[in-house]
Simulated assay, not measured.
Amino acid sequence: MSSTASPPAAPGPTATAALLVLADGTLLRGEAFGAIGTAVGEVVFNTGMTGYQEVMTDPSYSGQLVTFTYPELGNTGVNAADQEAPHPHVRGVIARELAPVASSWRAEGDLDQWLAGHGVVGIRGVDTRALVRHLREGGAINGAISSDGTTPQALLAAVRSAPSMEGLNLTAQVSTREPYTWSEPCGATFDTRLQDRPARPYRVVAIDFGIKRAILERLVAHGCSVTVLPADSSLEAVLRERPEGVFLSNGPGDPAAVSGGIALVKGLLEQPDLPLFGICMGHQILGLALGGRSFKLAYGHRGLNHPCGSPGQVEITSQNHGFAIEADSLPAERVRITHHNLNDHTVAALELLHQPVFGVQYHPEASPGPHDADHHFARFVALMAARR
């Protein structure tokens, strides 16, 4: 990829010019959308064909500039029901094209204006296909989007002085500061008429490393009463809630840097009959608490079409993570790997052999994404039912 690659089309006569600068010196030019300004972060890509608002509001994307491989954003506008958090968590958005008109009966606003209102910068008109190939071959890399007149030289200096995602604990930036309860069931994307709901909901404590709203909705839909606690909660604070199960949420950054969360899970694992369920970062923190090691993937898994499975069973999954657990680092006498990512054979799910504990690297709440893996919520509930 050329260090001065040109966009497919020059900015229009009334458009504000924007730059995308990568730490390796790559410079792309395009048009600004969203807020006017400069944002520095890790440049990654998402392969989903839908769900751009869910992606942008997912706390796991904190600190990142997200490239969308789908060629046009904004077609369906934005609406409050599709948000995974009260506001966007992406630091910037990179798009091939932006739809001039939002066309959906569900639309409550325009993507461009919504991003501008939340201070999120964007660049459109760049060759996203070439950019994604560059990231796929060279790996995720720090970069900057700028539309405020900052020079390419100044942007490159800022990008090269920015910290790597490896070693960053970002959970404190996205976790709740105060405990709260959640009782809202899921929206129209799932059938909420689940069978065999308990007469008395299961008491679940969810540790918020950057939790998505859809996860809370699925827990409630499966018969849980959820209390959400901050990422830095103590073991005593968790047990004080008398949970029948503990959920470990998704979140941004390097799981190995979340030392408090790892220590908490080590303590929870000492409660031999307490069901634990982790998703994404929660899964990684569980693996680290069991003595495993994590590593940074070259460009991560971000999209709605990742096959994961075990012999005789495959699930098409939604994923968003840049780190994984080393399979060989897990204690074989205690842990069984139940699913692998079938693209690169990384660990996709694990369970403990003698305790009601399991974790999945992917997102069974599927927001956005396929519903193949929703059964993991039922599995968690079944473990609590057996304990009750």
Score class of each variant (00 low, 15 high):
Asn320Met: 14
Pro364Ile: 10
Glu326Ser: 15
Phe358Thr: 09
Arg336Val: 07
Glu365Phe: 01
Val347Met: 08
Ile337Trp: 11
Tyr362Asp: 09
Asp344Gln: 13
Leu352Tyr: 00
Glu326His: 13
Tyr362Ser: 10
His363Gly: 01
Gln361Thr: 00
Leu342Val: 07
Glu351Lys: 00
Gly322Ser: 15
Gln319Pro: 01
Asn343Ala: 14
Gln355Trp: 02
Ile325Gln: 07
His363Ile: 07
Leu352Arg: 00
Asp344Glu: 13
His345Ser: 14
Arg334Gln: 13
Ala332His: 14
Thr338Gln: 11
Leu353Gly: 01
Ile337Leu: 11
Gly359Arg: 11
Leu342Glu: 09
Leu342Met: 13
His339Ile: 09
Thr317Gly: 08
Glu351Val: 00
Phe358Gly: 05
His339Thr: 05
Thr317Gln: 06
Pro364His: 00
Gln355Pro: 13
Ile337Glu: 10
Asp328Cys: 09
Glu326Arg: 15
Ser329Asn: 10
Leu342Ala: 05
Glu365His: 03
Leu342Ser: 04
Asn320Glu: 10
Ala324Ile: 06
Ala349Gln: 10
Arg334Ala: 05
Ile325Cys: 07
Pro356Leu: 06
Glu365Arg: 08
Leu350Val: 05
Val347Lys: 04
Glu365Gln: 07
Ala327Arg: 09
Pro331Arg: 00
Ala349Val: 07
Pro356Phe: 04
Glu351Gly: 02
Asp328Tyr: 06
Asn320Tyr: 08
Ala348Asn: 03
Thr317Arg: 04
Gly322Asp: 14
Leu350Met: 15
His321Tyr: 10
Asn320Pro: 07
Ile325Thr: 03
Gln361Gly: 04
Thr317Ser: 12
Ile325Gly: 11
Val347Tyr: 01
Leu330Gln: 05
Thr346Glu: 11
Gly359Pro: 00
Leu330Pro: 02
